[in-house]
C-alpha cells in the first residue's frame, strides 16, 4: 500500500493533494535569480526598453494575449510584472502564470502583490521568485523592487521597509548607475499602503535625488501623476484584464511612457 502511494505520488500533475501544496518543477524555482543571470548576459544600451504589466490574477487568456502582443516589440530589455500574479494565493495559479510568461522573448521580473500573500502564498512567492525586496543595476539605472503591501502586515509600520530602501538608494563609491526606478504593487496614495509611511516613503525617494519615476500596479486603471511635488512621477499601469500595458524607454536623465492596448 505504502509503495503504491509513493509510486502514485511521483505522477506529477495527475494528483493534487491540496490547492496550497507547494510542489514546483525545477524550472519554476528561484526565477528572480535565474532571470538576473539572463540579463547579466545582455548588453544594456543608452536607452533601456521595458514592458510593464501586472495584476494577472485569474485572467489567463488575457495574459496569453499580452504575451503575444509584447513579443511583437523589438529589443526589449526585460518585462516587469507589477504583482498580484495570483488571485486566490494558490500555487497552481503561480504555475499557470509562469507557464504563460515563460513564452516571453525576454526575462521577466516580479514584485509581490497583496493577493500573492494570501493563504501560504508568501512561501510560494519566496520559492518561485525569491526575496520580496530586491534590486539590481542594469546599465545606468538601478531598479529597486520593494514590497508595499502594508495591509497584509496589518499596517505594522515596517512595510515598506524604508531603512532598506534608503540603503538601496545610496550610491556606493564607484557606482556605475546614475539614477533609480522603484517598482511596487501598491502606490503610496492608496488606502492599502501604510498611511504613517506614505510621506516618509516619498521623502526617501526625493532625498536620494536619484529617483524621478516610481512604478505601481494594484489600482486596475491607468494613473500617472505627481501627487506630492513636481519631482517624482508615480505611474500606475492598468491590469492585463483591462488589456493594457506600459512601454517605457529610459535614458540617462529621462524617460518616456507609452500606454499600449491589446
Amino acid at each position: 500500500m505504502a509503495v503504491l502511494l509513493l509510486a502514485l505520488s511521483s505522477c506529477d500533475g495527475l494528483f493534487e493533494y491540496h490547492p496550497n501544496q507547494i510542489i514546483l518543477d525545477s524550472d519554476e524555482k528561484n526565477l528572480t535569480a535565474y532571470n538576473l543571470q539572463k540579463i547579466r548576459q545582455q548588453q544594456p544600451g543608452d536607452t533601456l526598453k521595458l514592458i510593464v504589466m501586472g495584476d494577472t490574477q485569474r485572467f489567463y487568456d488575457d495574459a496569453q494575449d499580452f504575451v503575444k502582443k509584447a513579443n511583437g516589440f523589438q529589443d526589449i530589455d526585460f518585462v516587469v510584472h507589477q504583482g498580484d500574479i495570483s488571485d486566490f494565493g494558490m500555487t497552481q495559479e503561480f504555475k499557470w502564470i509562469h507557464d504563460i510568461m515563460e513564452d516571453l522573448k525576454w526575462p521577466y521580473f516580479t514584485v509581490i502583490g497583496n493577493h500573492d500573500m494570501l493563504a501560504n502564498a508568501r512561501k510560494v512567492y519566496k520559492k518561485m521568485y525569491g526575496d520580496f525586496n530586491y534590486s539590481f543595476v542594469y546599465g545606468h539605472t538601478k531598479f529597486v523592487f520593494i514590497d508595499t503591501n502594508s495591509r497584509e502586515y496589518s499596517f505594522n509600520g515596517k512595510v515598506p521597509d524604508l531603512g532598506w530602501l534608503r540603503g538601496q538608494l545610496q550610491q556606493e563609491p564607484g557606482a556605475t548607475w546614475k539614477q533609480a526606478i522603484t517598482i511596487s504593487h501598491i502606490p503610496p496614495y492608496d488606502g492599502d499602503f501604510d498611511k504613517k509611511l506614505e510621506l516618509p516613503f516619498h521623502q526617501t525617494l526625493k532625498e536620494s535625488n536619484l529617483v524621478s519615476l516610481s512604478l505601481y500596479g494594484h489600482i486596475h486603471r491607468w494613473l500617472s501623476e505627481y501627487p506630492y511635488d513636481n519631482h517624482i512621477l508615480y505611474h500606475a499601469t492598468t491590469t492585463v484584464k483591462e488589456r493594457g500595458f506600459s512601454y517605457i524607454r529610459i535614458w540617462e536623465g529621462g524617460y518616456d511612457i507609452k500606454r499600449i492596448a491589446f
Binding site: L8, D61, F88, M90, I100
Partner: peptide, 26 residues
C-alpha cells in the same frame, strides 16, 4: 476540481481546460 479552478476555467476557456483543472483521487 475546486470551485476556484472551475471559475478560472469558465473565464479562461482558451488557456485552461478540464485536463488542467481536474485531478485524480483514489
Amino acid at each position: 476540481s475546486n470551485v476556484e479552478y472551475i471559475v478560472s476555467y469558465v473565464q479562461n476557456p482558451a488557456y485552461l481546460s478540464p485536463a488542467k483543472i481536474f485531478n485524480l483521487a483514489l
